[in-house]
Simulated assay, not measured.
Amino acid sequence: MGNTTITNFTNGGTIKSTGGVGVNIASGTTISNLKNTGTINGSDGIKLANGTKLETLNNTGVISSGNGSGVKVENGATINSINNSGVISGNNSGIC
């Protein structure tokens, strides 16, 4: 998703990609609150890039990657606050 504003993004189920990123947030997207109580999995679980802004990540579920990062932040993307009482894991790193 790109160039979008989302107030609340909530996952209580399973988001899984066998060939790419679980949740790919790119190109100027702003999310106020991303809440995960389920499972997010992919080459990177969640990837933020190119000026993306995530105000708050609340995780009580599982965000994971078998060959990348649980949460990957790159190219000017930002996360203001992370509240984690679940699992954020990746083969390379949990959060990078």
Rank of each mutant, 00 (worst) to 15 (best):
M1I: 12
N3M: 13
T5M: 06
I6S: 04
T7D: 15
N8P: 00
F9A: 14
F9N: 02
N11L: 07
N11K: 05
N11V: 03
G12N: 15
G12K: 13
G13V: 12
T14F: 01
I15P: 05
I15N: 04
I15E: 08
K16G: 04
K16V: 03
T18C: 00
T18M: 06
G19I: 14
G20Y: 10
G22H: 03
V23Y: 06
N24G: 07
I25K: 02
I25H: 02
I25P: 00
A26S: 15
S27K: 13
S27T: 15
S27I: 10
S27W: 08
T29N: 11
T30Q: 10
T30C: 05
T30E: 09
T30P: 00
I31L: 10
I31V: 15
N33V: 05
K35D: 05
K35N: 13
T37F: 07
T39P: 00
I40H: 01
G42P: 07
S43Y: 06
G45K: 05
N50C: 02
G51Q: 11
T52K: 03
K53I: 15
T56I: 12
T56F: 01
N59A: 11
N59T: 06
N59M: 08
T60G: 12
G61S: 08
G61T: 06
I63W: 03
S65K: 04
N67E: 11
N67S: 15
G68A: 09
S69Y: 11
S69A: 13
K72Q: 13
E74M: 08
N75I: 06
G76K: 11
A77N: 07
S85E: 13
S85G: 09
S85Y: 02
S89I: 04
G90W: 07
N91R: 11
G94C: 03
C96K: 08
C96A: 10
